[in-house]
Design a protein around this nucleic acid. Structure first.
Length: 205
DNA sequence: GGGTTGATGTTC
DNA sequence: AACATCAACCCG
């Protein structure tokens, strides 16, 4: 199957986030089927980096659709996103979980875990399993600048049941149903319907 | 199983 | 000060 081209990322960020579920992320000898994503919209979404970080707005203006947006969070974990622009709504898509397909041994040693379910079932875990870090920030994952061995492949999967849910681990715009995942897939980070919204000053009253 | 907590560093 | 997390630890 062919690698996705930039036009895939030139659509509405919600459509792309949904359509990425079931796609195979190919990364330097390893790969996995994307089973969970989250969309963040550049406009009107207080949880998106563009709402608070000038560097994120500059990145979106400068880079092409399909570019990797990689950043460090909680002092410990890299998170891997893809840039969407040129369609209905621009934004970033966090890749949150993979079902491992290739390079299991590399993932196991980098994660220091054996079970497939412990390798990529969360955004920090999958970045560690694939050895993604800040050196990959801005890397084109589609089109001309794409490196051999890196990209996104449409995969011919059996019919999948993609459901939407609220996003994980954020404190603003917590009720947007912009997380997309395969229901009942054991490799997702949090099962459908199980995201807990942290108590806030306003909700505690 | 489920809830809680500590480890870490970059950005604003 | 906040943060798009995780694993180890408790309790049962």
């Amino acid at each position: 199957m062919a690698f996705l081209e930039p036009d895939f990322f030139q659509r509405d960020v919600l459509a792309v986030a949904r359509d990425l579920v079931g796609v195979e992320l190919v990364w330097n000898g390893c790969s996995g089927i994307i089973v969970e994503t989250e969309a963040y919209a550049a406009e009107g979404d207080a949880a998106c980096h563009t709402a608070s970080r000038p560097s994120a707005r500059e990145f979106m203006a400068a880079k092409p659709p399909g570019a990797a947006y990689v950043y460090f969070n909680y002092g410990m974990y890299w998170l891997f996103n893809l840039l969407v622009k040129g369609g209905g709504h621009d934004g970033l898509i966090l890749i949150r979980a993979l079902e491992p397909r290739k390079g299991l041994e590399s993932m196991q040693s980098r994660r220091n875990r054996e079970k497939a379910r412990d390798l990529c079932s969360g955004p920090g875990k999958l970045a560690q399993a694939l050895a993604i870090d800040g050196s990959h920030h801005g890397l084109p994952m589609a089109g001309k600048g794409r490196l051999p061995g890196f990209g996104l492949k449409a995969s011919a999967l059996p019919a999948k049941e993609v459901v939407s849910d609220i996003r994980v681990g954020i404190s603003r715009a917590v009720d947007f149903p912009w997380r997309f995942l395969i229901r009942e897939n054991p490799h997702v980070s949090v099962p459908h319907g199980k995201v807990r919204v942290p108590a806030t000053a306003s909700s505690r009253s």
